[in-house]
C-alpha cells in the first residue's frame, strides 16, 4: 500500500466515522462522544513512506488504530456494549485514557 493510498484511505475512514456518528446521533439511541481534530496542514506533510506508522491493536474490548501524521491521529472505538450502544472516541494526540 502506498502512502497516497493510505492518505486517501484515512480520509475515507474519517468520513465514514463521521457518517456513522451523525446517523447514530440522529437516531438518538447511542451514547456518542466524538472529538475529531482536523489539521489541514497535516495533509500536506504526508510522509510517502509512512506505512510503518500504521499500527493497530485490539485489547480489552477496544479496537484502536493509529495513523500517525495523518488526518485523524488515533481513533478508539469502544465495542464492549455493542449490543446496546456504541461509543466513539477520536483523539488526535495519542491514545486517550478516559476509558
Amino acid at each position: 500500500m502506498s502512502g497516497d493510498y493510505l492518505k486517501r484511505l484515512n480520509l475515507v475512514l474519517a468520513l465514514t466515522l463521521l457518517t456513522l456518528v451523525s446517523l447514530s446521533a440522529l437516531a438518538s439511541d447511542s451514547s456518542v462522544f466524538v472529538l475529531i481534530e482536523v489539521e489541514a496542514s497535516d495533509l500536506d506533510e504526508i510522509d510517502q513512506d509512512a506505512d510503518e506508522n500504521f499500527d493497530s491493536h485490539f485489547s480489552n474490548g477496544y479496537y484502536s488504530f493509529k495513523l500517525e501524521n495523518y488526518f485523524v491521529g488515533t481513533l478508539l472505538i469502544d465495542l464492549r456494549p455493542f449490543n446496546r450502544h456504541i461509543s466513539y472516541f477520536a483523539n488526535y494526540r495519542g491514545p486517550p485514557n478516559q476509558f
Binding site: V12, T16, L20, D29, I86
Partner: peptide, 22 residues
C-alpha cells in the same frame, strides 16, 4: 481489486454498525 475490496469492507462495516444496535 484492492480499491473495491476496501469499499466492500467499509460499506459492510458501516452497514453492520448502523444495523446491529437497532
Amino acid at each position: 481489486g484492492l480499491a473495491f475490496f476496501t469499499g466492500f469492507v467499509v460499506s459492510l462495516l458501516l452497514g453492520l454498525l448502523l444495523f446491529i444496535p437497532r
